[in-house]
């Protein structure tokens, strides 16, 4: 069990003051995918614990980064928060006006109404746009589904959105294949903005783009955040970009959050041995620095999330493991210094 189960994850959270109002509150969230066996009579023989008991808050107007290696559950977390996957257990609350509303208990029309407030930007701009729909139809589809706007107003609004994301409104009748990767990602962003959401989950929005295009899209996301007071959950594996764009960062490993801290604090003073190894593994575009770099090379691979190790789930690769890491139950997140949470028996 996580030690923070019922406490707010930040000192500000409970007070709800202006710069620290919780927009999304996630508590003990779990998402397990069943593994079944048998052809006619299927029975569950195990579970992939993609997200295993995580808790965090996202404050209004901030960007929370979610980083980790492939298979650590970061995308599943994003999708479960948006209720695109039904959680196995736990709570996800979204602030509506002055009240946190529980999303996991909502169904049907109630949930659909909440979806206007939370949208998603996908990783692959080639797969996330319907090739048979024109740009205008793609961007206005949310408007048609949620019926928030009269048809005759839609055209002008879509052109305004396209302009807002840096595309020529003249492109409205073109099809996705006529655009480059960066432009397609802008179309995806315009679609996510159509319903004027307050909260956007950006799932690796720049990983599929070329280096020279990434900065363009990141700058756009930052401009939009400032203008529209957006809150982002930014899922990524590029740790340099995460430091640039995020206010706070959560590091995931095997379905759990191992460390959560303000971005500068996390990069300058990582406490969890996994975060330390992860940060030291990132190459920096500076040959002099690279020559001096002391890398912490982790041995082995990430264990399977269907069969995570007993005790602390990092104990198969941890360079500083000791007896407690095998014997004691999983270390929960504790607040090591104000606002800096870490789950490690070595700390605290």
């Amino acid at each position: 069990m996580s030690a923070v189960a019922d406490q707010p994850l930040s000192r500000n959270a409970a007070e709800g003051d202006a710069d620290g109002r919780v927009l999304v509150r996630v508590r003990n969230l779990k998402k397990h995918f069943p593994i079944t066996s048998g052809i006619v009579i299927q029975r569950q023989v195990g579970a992939v614990k993609a997200v295993d008991d995580i808790s965090f808050d996202i404050f209004e107007g901030e960007t929370l980064g979610l980083v980790g290696e492939s298979g650590c559950g970061k995308s599943t977390t994003g999708r479960t928060v948006l209720q695109l996957y039904e959680p196995t257990a736990g709570s996800v609350q979204l602030r509506v006006d002055d009240e946190l509303q529980e999303l996991t208990e909502m169904k049907g029309e109630d949930l659909r109404r909440m979806r206007r407030r939370m949208q998603m930007i996908f990783q692959d701009p080639y797969a996330s746009l319907n090739p048979r729909m024109s740009v205008g139809r793609i961007v206005s589809e949310p408007l048609r589904i949620h019926k928030t706007m009269e048809r005759n107003e839609q055209e002008g609004y879509v052109e305004h959105l396209l302009e807002r994301v840096g595309l020529n409104p003249y492109f409205v009748n073109r099809y996705p294949h006529e655009f480059s990767g960066g432009q397609r990602q802008r179309i995806g962003i315009a679609r996510a903005l159509a319903l004027e959401p307050g909260f956007i989950v950006a799932d690796e929005p720049i990983s599929a783009l070329d280096v020279s295009i990434q900065a363009q899209v990141v700058n756009l996301l930052e401009d939009l955040q400032e203008e529209l007071n957006l809150t982002y959950l930014f899922i990524a594996h590029d740790l340099s970009m995460v430091r640039h764009i995020c206010d706070r960062v959560a590091v995931m490993y095997l379905g759990k959050i191992v460390e959560l801290a303000p971005a500068d604090e996390l990069y300058e003073n990582p406490l969890h041995p996994y975060t330390q190894a992860l940060l030291s593994a990132v190459p920096v575009p500076d040959p002099m620095r690279e020559k001096r770099a002391q890398r912490i090379i982790l041995t082995g691979d990430v264990p399977s999330p269907s069969n995570p190790p007993e005790g602390c789930n990092f104990n198969t690769r941890c360079p500083v493991r000791f007896g407690l890491c095998y014997d004691a139950p999983d270390p929960g997140l504790i607040e090591a210094t104000p606002g800096h949470y870490v789950a490690c028996h070595r700390v605290g």
């Binding site: 280096v211 020279s212 990434q214 900065a215 990141v218 700058n219 930052e222 740790l239 340099s240 970009m241 430091r243 640039h244 764009i245 500068d264 990069y267 940060l279 990132v282 920096v284 575009p285 500076d286 620095r289």
Partner: peptide, 12 residues
């Protein structure tokens, strides 16, 4: 255009 992990960067 590359953010640097070893320092806080301004606008890219």
């Amino acid at each position: 255009s590359l953010p640097r992990m070893d320092r806080r960067s301004q606008r890219l």
